[in-house]
């Protein structure tokens, strides 16, 4: 049956809607081979029916059409695979920030890593161009009520320098009272937890 492998690829995508499984190079290669095979077979058969049009030979036209449909389907699946992975990667830029966790990064292909760093630098450039000093669009997603908030540290993050120059040590389970604008990003990344 045609396109079985492409179907496996898409099923893998639909099982992991908001996470990226490892880039499936093996399967993509196999699909590539299948498409190439179909193309050569089609060319051969098209040549034969072209040659034997004068004689009343069995037409290969339906065969070629069905194979062509399979080629189109394979290509659609491959494109959809890459497109949806990029969409997921784009969301990750907004949620994890510009540095991905190492285990996520190891699941990406080389070109996806390049794309991510290009997207990231484009985004930074855009955010810097807004207004006079630039705006970080990834913070202040919820309207602030107070300047300072209480946070609890969830991991051993290490030293953290505030804008006024003071340095504090973020250790697991330590509590701090910090300016909201400075710790919002760490909360988004899951290092700190907001205590209400």
């Amino acid at each position: 049956m045609f396109c079985e492998k492409a179907h496996v690829l898409i099923k893998e995508l639909s099982r992991n809607r908001d996470a990226l499984p490892p880039y499936n190079t093996d399967l993509l290669n196999e699909i590539n081979t299948e498409v190439k095979q179909l193309i050569t077979q089609n060319q051969e058969d098209a040549q034969i029916s072209e040659d034997s049009r004068v004689m009343n030979h069995a037409s290969y036209l339906p065969t070629v059409k069905i194979r062509h449909a399979a080629i189109k389907r394979n290509i659609r699946c491959i494109l959809a695979y890459h497109y949806n992975r990029l969409k997921c990667l784009r969301n990750m830029r907004w949620q994890f920030g510009s540095i991905l966790p190492p285990d996520v990064k190891s699941n990406l292909s080389q070109s996806e890593i390049e794309w991510f760093s290009k997207y990231s630098s484009n985004l930074v450039q855009y955010m810097r161009s807004i207004g006079d000093e630039g705006i970080n669009l990834a913070v202040d997603l919820k309207p602030p009520k107070s300047l300072y908030i209480e946070v609890r540290c969830l991991t051993d993050y290490g030293q953290f320098e505030l804008n006024d120059g003071s340095v504090l040590l973020l250790k697991e389970n330590s509590r701090h009272y910090l300016p909201r604008s400075e710790c919002e990003e760490l909360i988004r990344q899951g290092v700190l937890e907001h205590v209400v």
Partner: peptide
């Protein structure tokens, strides 16, 4: 009430 800041869903 004050809406607590949360980690991103993917995180």
């Amino acid at each position: 009430s004050e809406i607590p800041l949360e980690a991103a869903t993917m995180v």
